[in-house]
Design a protein around this nucleic acid. Sequence first.
DNA 1: TTGTATGCGTTATCAC
DNA 2: GTGATAACGCATACAA
Lengths: 351, 351
Amino acid sequence: MDRPRKPTLDTVASAVGVSRATVSNAYNRPDQLSAALRERILAAAQALGYAGPDPVARSLATRHSAAVGFMLGHRLSASFSDQALSVVLDGLASTVDGHDHCLVLMPGHDRGGPRPSTVSRAQADVVVAYSLPDDAPALAAVRARGLPLVVIDQPVLPDTARVEVDDYAGARMAAEHVVARGHRRVAVLTFALRPDGRNGLVSPVRRGSASFRVTRDRVNGYLDVLGDVPVWECADSTRELARTGARELLSPSPTRPTAVVCTSDELAFGAIQAARDLGLRVPEDVSVVGFDDIPAAQHADPPLTTIRQPLAEKGRRAGELALRLLDGGRPGEPSRVALGLVERESTTAVK
Amino acid sequence: MDRPRKPTLDTVASAVGVSRATVSNAYNRPDQLSAALRERILAAAQALGYAGPDPVARSLATRHSAAVGFMLGHRLSASFSDQALSVVLDGLASTVDGHDHCLVLMPGHDRGGPRPSTVSRAQADVVVAYSLPDDAPALAAVRARGLPLVVIDQPVLPDTARVEVDDYAGARMAAEHVVARGHRRVAVLTFALRPDGRNGLVSPVRRGSASFRVTRDRVNGYLDVLGDVPVWECADSTRELARTGARELLSPSPTRPTAVVCTSDELAFGAIQAARDLGLRVPEDVSVVGFDDIPAAQHADPPLTTIRQPLAEKGRRAGELALRLLDGGRPGEPSRVALGLVERESTTAVK
DNA sequence: TTGTATGCGTTATCAC
DNA sequence: GTGATAACGCATACAA
């Protein structure tokens, strides 16, 4: 027993005794027909169980789908536990949601971003990419489809709108902050350089082959200030992986670092926990600097010194760019947002 | 200057000198034509910049869109900061993504769920609803469109697949746990009873008019064990609102509670912070019980006693049900998942 | 204000 | 194996 065929515009039109176009107008251009007729049509539709124009057919006819695609670098679970992403996504959503758009999520199947086949089936008329590897196949898939693309924190791509941040400069700020406070033994804790799930100390070779631009720029920013210091890579930006890594970095030794700079606040939280695991106080024994300034940073114990990034603003900008591309606008200049150091209590001068 | 018209099946067909149908077959039924011809077609498509069949047109012709809709009770920001939701969503995504389906997110415009207009424009052929008010207009909109519906944690609806949990029993477990440890003065901290943004003590009238089934069942479970104890409602399940509320509940008084039971772990974290704000130790001075057992619960300080809910499993079940409805299957019996108490270190016997 | 004709890019059912 | 042809459900110039 299959369901009775759903009513269409035609069903309603012939029921009321008008043409398809008139029924269409009743929904899309109320000013094109008399209020009375419109009422009659809507009532008939109601009675027939017609819920309004079919979105797919409408999309085909109008050639746009009122949906914004969002490509993520990670699986959803990893993504959602990332507060920074959540805030960005919220900024984006607040912009596009006002326009009755849906968000089509294309989660990464592993760490490399969505599959090309997912991208080629997604019904969206613009897509926003965030925290993908520079060479993600999903990016090529979007371009192949000819969909307008907005990237956040990605390298320059031709004909693409971007919102960008000077991660290199931000990282330098963080490093200079600890150097200015007398720290000479510093370590770096970073999230993934490449999407292959590795955890551990980073060799120069690996550093050179980083495929996440954000990671590469931040790490380079640190090292250009700090010199050749140990760098520990975590496969994901999670507290637990950071805790494990930082325990290695901070293990007792004559050259134990007095400061750890981290590519995210989440990693910094893990570093603080690791310090405590080892009986070290923050900031008295170890200073810790984060990156992002997520909401939790100021409520942390101790409140976290970090590089502030206007996350919600990034999302909003991406949303605005997406809306503009949707309107047929040109990508235009990259939208650049500013970074700044927020000094709180997780750092202090070296003893 | 508008873009050159995109190539279609026809473009490729006439370039190769075959019919549209054959090109279509090259993509969808490789066994229907010779490998050599298929190669030629694919190569021509590549050369013409044809990225494969247009998803919208395909959806119109096949009458399904390979997308699963997900209706949220909240704005995206509130949703994304909710770890429990994230885990559910991940379970759902892992199920549907394996079948090359996209996830279409329909955020709530306030706390009442998505607008009907959003629902009627969304291109999905099944929708999953989560943490919506019982009377959310979005639910009616889905039914009006005749789309199959899967609900999580919602009241029974005719002709709808459900995954459900016995929240009432879970809440009883939590309450009985503290009672068994000698607590006689207990308070309840809950998330919203109704989607109106209220924060504060809950009157019996308000309690009776709760429109979130989950909240209603949990609070009733607590109170049926604890009697008529104070209940503080937070408009959202956030740490900060909980902190504020718990500070009220725990403010110095001869009847200050020795235990707080919370409808979510996130609220419990706020309660712990509030206790500390007031100079109270957890669990020595105040025991705290959460609900959900999100990943953060076991790493909390102190590790949180809570009611474990198999969140990822809920998502997966919802995904499986959605896939089944997609195949024309019947809703069938509700899929029920089990709850259990996880005793950690945030609770202890009363002094 | 209302109706007619046509196009949107596919898939699917048959012929050949 | 391959090719016409008819849906799919709607929007939109344009004519009436």
